[in-house]
Design a protein around this nucleic acid. Structure first.
Lengths: 342, 342
DNA sequence: GTGAAAGCGCTAACAT
DNA sequence: ATGTTAGCGCTTTCAC
């Protein structure tokens, strides 16, 4: 049953050499119309398809991209994964998935495993890379691009939204909205997205002569965000923020739930809430979350472009940091300043 | 830079043959402690790791599993993907992802592509398989298991929750709740989940001498579900259902939104809503959706078990249909019958 | 227990 | 344009 059909078998049936068969199935090769005809016929009769692995061995290109991803519970990532996979598929590549927790040891061994598969490139989504890991990949000649993370590492490209500018927009929006006490709920402190968003947000406040009223850490985790929200808001009206920027939508939606259903507060009546990402759920009628959009399509496009460029011309391609503009999406979870226009 | 370290290089440095190196890195092989020692030392000095692809060529096992998946916007699937990938990783396999739309032509070519990678097995999540595709996989000796889909095809295993029994539970619950007019919003009619859930639901109603008051099709799609919900509920109170079973949570949450925020109805005051899947969002405070739980962990466990069994003993392993019990999770989106106990 | 040798299925010079 | 030849990096008989 498990009889593999080889190029050799096709060659015999078509009455040509095995390399002729190879040429017919190799994009940039030359064969006479007659040969092509015969080979195609024999191949389809036999149900022959080239073995990608064998091809990879000799050509040195596996047409596989390793994708490392940590949290699929943050809706932004499934969306990104789907789009990444589709874009890569369209370019003739396929995605080998590696789940990694943020634990350093784990991510280390995960990257080793990826390399074992001779992938042509690696995309790290939501995970950071140690610098020795980076050199390991470089030594192996495998380009890496960071998706939604930034690190200033030699030879590593990164694609992010403009987290800093996006968060500034939020700061300005909240200040213009006339809020008195503005809070911030942080993500995991090890993440560049967290740091950049907080920095941009603080900048905007500080330029308005304001500062953060209170700050908690939600770590991008569901449980810790519940705790953070209660900690920040379960107190008398005068002591709690009347506006809060939550470092991503996943956490912001949880904060809205705590506010409305645990504490009986009105959003945005009592508290304005703003998130970051614009995941699908953010637009749902139960939330109508004001947020900053990470344009997944563009981010994916740039990621794939950077990666393929590094693969196709390893010598000339320079690692780059692409920053995608991130627009404020005004919905109904935060008070809108008078006369505000997009 | 891109100097690959080969077993040959390790062999030279360790002063042994290349096959000795291979044996040291092959689980079931024999080598003297002395050799192991020397080889390990040389290998780690050189940073050697076996090339999985080369190993795959000769051994005939690639340690890759092809995963075909269609909708990552239904939260059940990212969750499943994450768990599947983790479980497979733990067993020494890795997941090669293929996104497929439900269009027949596409799925056909996707499976061909998977086979080209010489995967050791295939998991089809949320997609159906034509019977000629099935024979193609069988001819290639690649076992297939359907995840969350069932088809009565020779030689194909399938793992599902007990959709029929789960949906019966819902029917009984709604009847016991004293609802007058019970509606049903269907998923994509091509899906076995849709068919089984509807069948179980109708059975329960019919055993109580009842039948469905109205039915619309949401196709598991966001847009079509909005339309279906409006169609079913945008009418006078006496003409619309006072309870509805929606074929999955993804759609049920949308229906709740339409009911509450577009039509100004109360859930469960005016309408009881029940879903199926128990995705994370279903438990959120804004929804508190009563639903039936698909136990992703168990489903994944059985899927991996069935697949690995087929891979490890192709001759003896019989294709099987595993059905996981699916409990009703009572929350707050549907009126609870008096005296109801779990 | 260990080395030599034969491929796995294919591509890429190299001739012709 | 086509066939011949030499591997890609590894596992696996087969002798010793």
């Amino acid at each position: 049953m498990a009889e593999r059909v080889t190029a050799q078998m096709v060659a015999e049936r078509a009455g040509v050499s095995q390399s002729a068969v190879s040429r017919v199935f190799t994009p940039g090769a030359s064969a006479s119309p007659k040969t092509v005809e015969k080979v195609r016929k024999a191949a389809s009769e036999l149900g022959y398809r080239p073995n990608v692995l064998a091809r990879a061995m000799v050509s040195g290109r596996s047409r596989m991209i390793g994708l490392v991803v940590a949290y699929l519970d943050n809706q932004f990532y499934p969306e990104a994964l789907e789009k990444l996979s589709n874009a890569l598929q369209a370019a003739g590549y396929h995605v080998l998935v590696f789940m990694a927790s943020q634990k350093a040891g784990n991510i280390n061994s995960v990257v080793e495993e990826i390399l074992d598969y001779q992938v042509d490139g690696i995309i790290m989504a939501s995970v950071a890379l140690s610098s020795d890991l980076t050199s390991r990949c470089q030594a192996a000649g495998v380009p890496v691009v960071l998706f939604n993370r930034y690190q200033d590492l030699e030879g590593t490209s990164a694609v992010t939204s403009d987290n800093r500018a996006g968060a500034r927009l939020i700061g300005e929006f909240l200040v213009a909205g006339g809020h008195e006490r503005i809070g911030y709920i942080a993500g995991w402190e090890g993440a560049s997205t967290q740091r950049d968003r907080e920095a941009g947000f603080r900048e905007a406040l500080s330029e308005a002569g304001r500062e953060i009223h209170s700050r908690e850490v939600g770590d991008f985790s569901t449980d810790r965000t519940f705790a953070a929200a209660r900690q920040m808001f379960d107190r008398p009206a005068e002591q709690r923020p009347d506006a809060v920027f939550v470092a991503n939508d996943h956490m912001a939606l949880i904060v809205m739930d705590v506010l409305r259903y645990e504490l009986g507060l009105s959003v945005p009546g009592d508290v304005s809430v703003v998130g970051y990402d614009d995941v699908p759920t953010a637009g749902w009628l139960a939330y109508r979350l004001t947020t900053v959009r990470q344009r997944a399509n563009l981010m994916v496009e740039e990621t794939v472009k950077a990666l393929l460029e590094s693969i196709d011309s390893p010598e000339t391609a320079r690692p780059r940091h692409v920053t995608i503009e991130a627009p404020l999406i005004v919905r109904a979870s935060a008070r809108v300043p008078e006369g505000w226009t997009t």
